[in-house]
Amino acid sequence: MGEDAVVRVEGRTLRLTNLGKVLYPEVGFTKAEVIDYYSRIAPVLLPHVRDRPATLRRFPDGVGGSSFFEKNVPSHAPEWVRRVRVGTSGSRGGAGYVDFVVVEDLATLVWLANLAALELHVPQWTVGARGGRHSPDLVVFDLDPGEPASVVECARVALVLREVLVADGLEPVVKTSGSKGLQVYAPVRVAAAERTSEYARGVARRLAAELPELVVWRMAKVLRSGRVLIDWSQNSPAKTTVAPYSLRARGVPSVSAPVSWAEVEGCRVVGDLVFVADEVRARVAASGDLFRVGVPSPLPR
Score class of each variant (00 low, 15 high):
113 A>T: 10
292 R>H: 07
92 R>M: 06
220 A>I: 02
234 Q>M: 14
42 A>F: 09
60 P>A: 13
36 D>G: 11
17 T>F: 08
284 V>Q: 06
139 V>K: 03
134 H>V: 08
206 R>T: 12
166 V>C: 05
277 A>M: 03
158 A>S: 13
160 V>H: 11
102 V>H: 00
57 R>N: 11
102 V>Y: 04
155 A>Q: 09
61 D>G: 07
237 P>Y: 00
241 T>A: 13
294 G>F: 01
195 R>W: 12
62 G>M: 05
4 D>W: 10
222 V>M: 05
16 L>S: 09
20 G>T: 02
141 F>P: 04
150 S>D: 02
206 R>K: 15
110 V>Y: 07
72 N>A: 06
19 L>V: 07
108 T>E: 05
185 Y>E: 09
247 L>R: 10
216 V>H: 02
52 R>T: 12
190 V>P: 00
39 S>L: 14
98 V>Y: 09
236 S>A: 06
264 V>H: 02
79 E>S: 15
276 V>N: 13
115 L>G: 11
162 R>Y: 06
84 V>G: 07
155 A>N: 02
277 A>D: 09
282 A>E: 15
254 S>F: 04
242 V>W: 11
138 L>T: 01
160 V>R: 13
198 E>T: 13
282 A>N: 06
269 V>I: 13
55 T>F: 04
271 G>I: 01
190 V>C: 03
263 E>P: 10
68 F>W: 15
190 V>G: 01
104 E>Q: 15
293 V>K: 07
167 A>V: 00
254 S>K: 13
8 R>P: 00
57 R>F: 06
233 S>Q: 13
138 L>D: 04
43 P>R: 13
110 V>E: 07
63 V>N: 15
181 G>R: 08
189 R>P: 02
145 P>Y: 12
29 F>T: 10
162 R>V: 03
88 T>G: 11
138 L>W: 14
173 V>P: 02
26 E>P: 07
59 F>S: 15
115 L>F: 11
109 L>M: 06
40 R>G: 12
109 L>F: 02
165 L>H: 11
131 G>M: 05
291 F>K: 08
7 V>W: 07
31 K>C: 12
299 L>W: 00
146 G>S: 10
278 D>C: 04
14 L>T: 11
239 K>M: 15
